[in-house]
Computed example of a mutant assay.
Amino acid sequence: MIKIGNIELPEFPLLLAPMEDVSDPPFRKLCKMHGADMMYSEFISSEGLIRDAMKSMKKLDIFDYERPVGIQIFGGDEEAMSLSAKIVEAVNPDIVDINFGCPVKKVVCKGAGAGVLKDVDLMIRLTKAVVNSTHLPVTVKTRLGWDTESINIMEVAERLQEVGVKALTIHARTRAQMYKGEADWNYIHAVKNNPNIEIPIFGNGDIDSAQKAWEYKNKFDCDGIMIGRGAIGYPWIFNEVKHFFKTGEILPEPTITQRLEAVRQHAEWSKDWKGERLGLIEMRQHYSNYFRGIPHFKDFRRKFLEVFTLEEMDGVIAEADAFYKDFEFVN
């Protein structure tokens, strides 16, 4: 069993990464259904929360079926981070997470996300401000460093632990890498095996199959894995990993019918959360991901993009299901 403060997780938990415009309640529900042990919200601007910005406040929505669930905040100002932690605490998540890893320019330019990697003292002050403002366990997600010349994850891990962080997720790339190149999990292994580190260390980066999860678990000795892009359009990855860990067997990929069912569920939950029209409009980014590599999906994608009601979607789903039942797949 892994503990984050008073939160109990199974041995070697699988976490869904906080991803902007992806890790919303409908997607989190789907990942929970398919085996994710813990979820995080999309990252939320501390400044946005303080201003009561509608988009930021909407991201605070969490539901009991998701638990344990963490809400992730980011920012570069101690007072704003402290106040936002109090706002987050009011909606009663299980964990408050701090984003020190987002490499996107609009975040970094504000001295937040991965921008804080340039100033470890500031990172610690921001973290301390959050820890001191909430009774909830505080966790952090970060990267190895700003670039290959300034990898400082060992120092960062020790100092975050000293100020009260209860778990650390490390995306094994630098900010300069963005999402390119290969993630270097050797640094995760080094942090985990540092005798001064007692908190759980979770690894993140490049996990896109059950076999790779198994390989990295055994090779790099982390306490659990956070999966991000590998789950986009493929929530089945969590159960596939768990099944492989338990049996050594690779589960068959989801059928077209199962993919269509997942799209329908995702869309229905999006409708319930944001209303039918907006919910279906926001679903548009997901269709290609659910059917990545499926031949002849382009025509159906166009039809999905034109739907504004679940009734219209059901028509496209029925048409696609019928087409692929007669379609002969050649390996």
Rank of each mutant, 00 (worst) to 15 (best):
residue 271 K to E: 05
residue 163 V to G: 08
residue 4 I to A: 05
residue 289 N to G: 15
residue 286 H to R: 08
residue 302 R to L: 14
residue 252 P to Y: 04
residue 94 D to I: 06
residue 79 E to N: 14
residue 188 I to W: 00
residue 224 G to H: 07
residue 69 V to T: 11
residue 85 A to R: 00
residue 140 V to Y: 02
residue 185 W to D: 01
residue 110 K to L: 15
residue 31 C to M: 06
residue 104 V to T: 13
residue 209 S to D: 07
residue 226 M to C: 15
residue 97 D to C: 09
residue 201 I to M: 03
residue 300 F to T: 08
residue 210 A to D: 01
residue 314 D to H: 11
residue 202 F to K: 02
residue 100 F to V: 07
residue 242 K to E: 06
residue 190 A to I: 11
residue 194 N to T: 09
residue 263 V to E: 01
residue 200 P to L: 00
residue 72 Q to V: 06
residue 264 R to D: 12
residue 304 F to G: 05
residue 244 F to Q: 07
residue 330 V to E: 13
residue 183 A to E: 00
residue 328 E to I: 15
residue 262 A to H: 02
residue 88 V to L: 06
residue 125 R to K: 15
residue 60 L to W: 06
residue 77 D to W: 03
residue 27 F to S: 02
residue 326 D to F: 09
residue 231 A to V: 12
residue 105 K to I: 12
residue 42 E to L: 06
residue 35 G to E: 05
residue 92 N to A: 15
residue 70 G to I: 03
residue 102 C to R: 01
residue 167 A to Y: 00
residue 255 T to M: 08
residue 146 W to L: 03
residue 155 E to V: 10
residue 171 H to Q: 07
residue 196 N to V: 04
residue 101 G to K: 00
residue 258 Q to D: 14
residue 79 E to A: 14
residue 131 V to K: 04
residue 203 G to H: 00
residue 19 M to C: 11
residue 49 L to F: 07
residue 199 I to H: 05
residue 263 V to W: 00
residue 272 D to E: 14
residue 225 I to H: 06
residue 296 H to C: 13
residue 319 E to K: 13
residue 202 F to L: 05
residue 295 P to T: 10
residue 196 N to E: 10
residue 63 F to A: 13
residue 198 E to W: 02
residue 204 N to Y: 01
residue 99 N to M: 08
residue 305 L to Q: 11
residue 30 L to T: 04
residue 187 Y to R: 00
residue 248 G to C: 08
residue 220 F to S: 06
residue 158 E to G: 13
residue 126 L to H: 03
residue 189 H to G: 07
residue 152 N to Q: 14
residue 5 G to Y: 05
residue 66 E to S: 14
residue 130 V to Q: 04
residue 79 E to Y: 12
residue 193 N to A: 07
residue 243 H to N: 15
residue 324 Y to F: 14
residue 257 T to Y: 11
residue 37 D to L: 05
residue 187 Y to L: 04
residue 56 S to C: 10
residue 217 K to H: 09
residue 80 A to E: 10
residue 277 R to T: 15
residue 232 I to P: 03
residue 315 G to Y: 08
residue 51 R to T: 02
residue 12 F to W: 08
residue 182 E to K: 15
residue 310 L to C: 12
residue 320 A to F: 04
residue 216 Y to E: 05
residue 2 I to Y: 01
residue 297 F to Y: 13
residue 119 D to M: 09
residue 101 G to H: 00
residue 150 S to G: 11
residue 71 I to Y: 03
residue 54 M to T: 15
residue 302 R to C: 10
residue 24 D to L: 05
residue 196 N to D: 09
residue 32 K to I: 10
residue 106 K to A: 13
residue 304 F to I: 04
residue 5 G to C: 08
residue 173 R to M: 05
residue 145 G to M: 01
residue 41 S to R: 00
residue 57 M to K: 13
residue 6 N to Q: 14
residue 270 S to D: 06
residue 92 N to Y: 13
residue 293 G to N: 12
residue 301 R to G: 06
residue 300 F to A: 09
residue 146 W to T: 00
residue 315 G to C: 09
residue 183 A to D: 01
